[in-house]
Amino acid sequence: MPPSLKLLAIASLCTLLGACTLIKFPGVHRIEVQQGNIITQDMVNQLKPGMTRRQVQFVLGTPLVEDTYNPNRWDYINRLRDPKGEVTQKRFSVYFNGDILIATSGDWQPTGWP
């Protein structure tokens, strides 16, 4: 087999394999993909003003983003891709004054905060 024919055959095979990702086969199970921190309203409701960083980390877990330029802010990000491919993203931030929790912001709000 001539080398140019081998090269053409390999290029054709690579093109066909690459095209397989564009086709969505019916009946194929797609999973839900969750990335980042899993945060629930119940977890957020456990937060109280005056908690220490360790207490907040115990309730919410390790933050996904700790900003080196703003060490008094922790960001928790949750990203979910459903089987249809739709992506939803939620954020939750906690703010500290030194080692003390002073405020929160984002898609969840603790109940009973001033």
Rank of each mutant, 00 (worst) to 15 (best):
N37E: 10
V56H: 07
N97M: 13
Y95E: 09
D42E: 15
P83N: 13
Q41L: 09
W108P: 03
S105G: 12
K6G: 00
L47P: 00
W74S: 02
W74M: 00
L5E: 14
E32M: 08
K6D: 08
W74Y: 12
D107Q: 06
L64W: 02
E86F: 14
L13D: 03
P3Q: 02
T88C: 00
V94A: 00
G112Y: 05
L60T: 05
G98P: 12
I31H: 11
N37W: 12
V33G: 01
L7H: 05
P49T: 13
V28T: 15
F58G: 04
D75K: 12
D82Q: 10
S4E: 15
T21M: 06
Q55M: 12
T52D: 12
C14W: 05
L16M: 13
I39T: 03
T21Q: 13
R79Y: 01
Y95M: 10
I77N: 03
S105Y: 04
D75A: 14
W113T: 03
F92R: 11
R54A: 15
T62A: 10
E66Y: 01
V33T: 07
T40M: 04
L80G: 00
T15M: 13
T21W: 06
C14V: 14
L7S: 11
E86V: 15
R54M: 12
I77D: 03
L13F: 14
I102C: 08
N37S: 15
I23P: 02
K48A: 05
R73W: 02
Q34V: 15
P2K: 10
L13P: 02
C14A: 13
I102G: 01
F96K: 09
M43F: 02
Q89M: 13
W74V: 00
L7Q: 06
E66M: 13
F25L: 15
R91Q: 11
D99A: 03
K6T: 07
S105I: 02
S12Q: 03
A9E: 10
R81K: 15
Q89H: 04
C20H: 04
Y76E: 05
P83T: 06
L80Q: 10
